Simulated assay, not measured.
Amino acid sequence: MSAFRVNVDDGASLHVRLLDADPSIKNKPLLIALHGAPGFSDHREPENSFGFLQSQYRILVYDARGSGISDLKQPYTNERWIADVEALRSESHPMAGAEKIVLAGGSYGGFLALTYALAFPSHLLCLILRDTFAWGSRGMMNVLKQILTSTRLKVNPDRQLRLWAGYLRDKQDFEDVYTEIAPLYSPDLPDEVGETIDGKYTSLKFEGANKKQDGRRFHAATQDAAFGFNVPRYDVRAGLKDIATPTLVVVGRHDLITPLEYSIELKKAF
């Protein structure tokens, strides 16, 4: 595993990690995995999701601009974020580059993966879409509905409105609002119960529930741009039929944030 910084064309510096279990194997395909939740999530999410593939692929994960420890350099737009993906793909960065890539994105990372597929189709080997959707406004309103109607949560409605409308007061406001909704992202099970695919039991606590221990960085301006400006304008439904890249769509059957029906719609559209 190697960690390094990549400076893109506008001078922003991105924190990048390249996972490669056996660098002696030459010409392994490059898989770039995009994290969700700009301003909240970081490279650890896709590293945990896709790291097991590093014997077959070079796995590149990174903190998007405005997230983690990458530069907090605006603009925080989908167009700029996919330009950063293209910079990492570019062979001008030999540690990261490849002529064609496998692109994986979960949640908001799926928005960017789909947007990239429409802008740079010739640079893709295939797409992996996890827990995502093609129409931003409907998806965002579904999340707000789940939050405000959940019997598991006790939330401040005004604070939730600030989160999803994109006008958080500050970093502390951002931390407080995510602490409120953390249980929605975890199974409705006792902390010690959670069956894995090999039949063993493990904890399924929400990673972000203890923000001080997991070292998460909250960047309110990035979140505001993503959900106050970008998501209401994100709608790639009309372009899905033009994506010829082989695509895998994956979702949890009981996902409340990105319901199964959204992934079924994606599958039918390709």
Rank of each mutant, 00 (worst) to 15 (best):
I59Y: 02
W81Y: 05
R17W: 14
N142W: 11
A37L: 14
D158N: 13
N78M: 12
F218W: 14
E265P: 00
E180W: 09
A96N: 11
Y62M: 06
D176P: 07
V177D: 00
M1A: 11
L118P: 07
G199E: 13
T115L: 15
F218S: 06
Y62Q: 02
W135F: 14
Y262A: 10
I257Q: 04
A12G: 08
V231K: 03
A244I: 03
R162G: 01
K268R: 13
A220V: 04
K212A: 12
R162M: 05
A104W: 07
N142I: 12
M95E: 15
L72E: 15
Y116Q: 00
E265K: 02
D9K: 13
R162I: 02
H93E: 15
H15I: 01
D214K: 06
S203F: 08
I59G: 02
P75S: 07
G252T: 00
D242E: 14
F227Y: 13
K205C: 11
A221M: 07
H123K: 15
V143C: 06
D71K: 04
E47Y: 03
P38Y: 01
F4H: 08
G208H: 03
I25R: 15
V61F: 10
S122R: 15
S49W: 06
D214Y: 06
V250Y: 08
V251A: 14
L31F: 05
P183Y: 00
M95A: 13
M140I: 10
G208L: 10
T149G: 08
A119I: 07
G36M: 02
E192V: 06
G51Q: 08
W81P: 00
V250K: 02
T202V: 09
A220H: 15
K154E: 14
L112A: 00
G39R: 02
C126P: 07
N27Y: 11
G66S: 08
G194I: 00
S203W: 06
N48W: 05
S49R: 10
I59T: 04
S2V: 09
D22V: 13
F227W: 11
D242W: 06
W164C: 06
L118H: 09
E195L: 14
P190Q: 07
F133H: 07
P75H: 08
K145W: 11
G39E: 05
L72W: 13
K205G: 12
V193G: 10
A226E: 07
S90Y: 10
V251K: 05
P183L: 00
R159K: 10
I264S: 10
M140P: 01
W81E: 09
G106V: 09
S2I: 09
H123F: 07
R253D: 15
A220W: 06
Q172H: 09
K200T: 12
E175G: 04
M95R: 14
S55W: 08
G139S: 03
R65P: 03
G66C: 04
Q213P: 01
D22C: 10
G39M: 03
E265V: 01
A244V: 02
E261L: 12
V231L: 12
R80W: 03
D9P: 04
A209Y: 02
L240T: 01
W164V: 12
L148T: 15
L34T: 01
F133P: 00
M140V: 08
G110T: 08
